[in-house]
Design a protein around this nucleic acid. Structure first.
Lengths: 202, 202
DNA sequence: GGTATGAACTATACCGTATAGTATAGCTAT
DNA sequence: ATAGCTATACTATACGGTATAGTTCATACC
């Protein structure tokens, strides 16, 4: 019979290509990335890439899909909602900001998704579903059900919370605002948490 | 003597080039833009572009500088802080969101700045200075001085306010989240304004 | 164990097109 | 007369994608 390579071997090559593609796409953008450079970075022949992916666009979308899936698990995967609301919220915000600040690939991924969202609207929506929308659901549910909180609109409050945190990350880390417009992250977080936890229900 | 063109004529040509550059750069990105297409769009010979700008990068930075300057005046230029805080804040947030939602060029500009912020960090910082930083200053000052407001940290509160609004715009309009994660803007704004105005100072 | 098989790979060259930037020559309006 | 323009052609390089020819290696059979 025809000798078959193990399925895992095929999957490994595919992973290897995606790994090389990540290095280049994340830092050079879609148009700035050449298939030759991806091939070199992946340690793979260019034609092998075209055996695994239809074309440059297919490789790019596969890459974004994988990153969007992988990254979510790291942000909200290990969140515990057991303690006092004040501590829970402070912990979530701190964790998100630390993750972004310490992971250059994360920042590059945001830049790529935003920059290409005009030409790849479906990928942008995939990203929204994979990250912010999940965060809104987890937080919205938390706000709605926690006995100590009396929050008028849990969904809107979830958007305020995540929006504040993400906007901070964008201006400070993505747009290099750290030096020109400094603000300690814990000051922002304290004020944000205080605002939400001590919400008056007039 | 040598016939001299009026200074305004030179400035007009420069404007004409920048106008053409805007059409292409905003929608095709930096790498996706060719100088030939810019020349055609501007109705100008390619060599004329190089008489006015050193190279592609110089044209690009000049374009971003101009847009960053122009656009600020439209957002916060005509803001009045005279009425009740609740109404003032609601008006500012509504105005920002309406402007972004109705102006495709604005959205394209955001995408461009974010996408190229890795390769053009100085331009990203220019943007931060021209838009969010000015907004933080105006709002922070308003929060600090308004007699009816008792806000613990005006600067942090200004970041919460603008961060919520901008993040909403990003997920809904830039990342095409409108259909997949709808939320009426006035619901968000009402909750945000209420949170800030009725802040308890415990 | 040895050997043939065939899928997946590599290296390299190639095609047609497009790029950033320059050179040349001629036009236009003051 | 001349500064500033246009049109066109050019150089050298790079692109996405394909073609060719040869290599590796797990399997199937003897």
């Amino acid at each position: 019979m025809s000798p078959m390579p193990t399925e895992s071997a095929i999957a490994e090559k595919r992973q290897q290509i995606l790994q090389g593609a990540m290095e280049i796409f994340l830092h050079q953008g879609y148009e700035g990335t050449s298939m030759d450079r991806v091939a070199t970075a992946a340690g793979v022949s260019k034609i092998t890439i075209y055996k695994h992916f239809a074309d440059k666009e297919g490789l790019f979308t596969a890459l974004i899909e994988q990153i969007a899936e992988q990254r979510f698990n790291r942000v909200l995967g290990g969140i515990y909602l057991e303690k006092e609301p004040e501590e829970v919220l402070r912990h979530i915000a701190t964790q998100i900001l630390q993750l972004i600040a310490s992971d250059e690939q994360y920042v590059a991924f945001f830049r790529l998704i935003m920059g290409e969202s005009g030409r790849f609207p479906e990928l942008a929506q995939l990203f929204v579903r994979a990250l912010p929308q999940r965060a809104w659901k987890v937080l919205g549910n938390y706000f709605a059900t926690h006995p100590k909180l009396d929050i008028a609109n849990p969904e809107a409050t979830a958007r305020i919370f995540t929006g504040t945190v993400i906007s901070y990350a964008i201006t400070q880390y993505i747009l290099h605002g750290e030096q020109i417009a400094p603000m300690p992250s814990d000051v922002l977080i304290e004020n944000l948490v205080h605002l939400i936890v001590n919400q008056s229900s007039s």
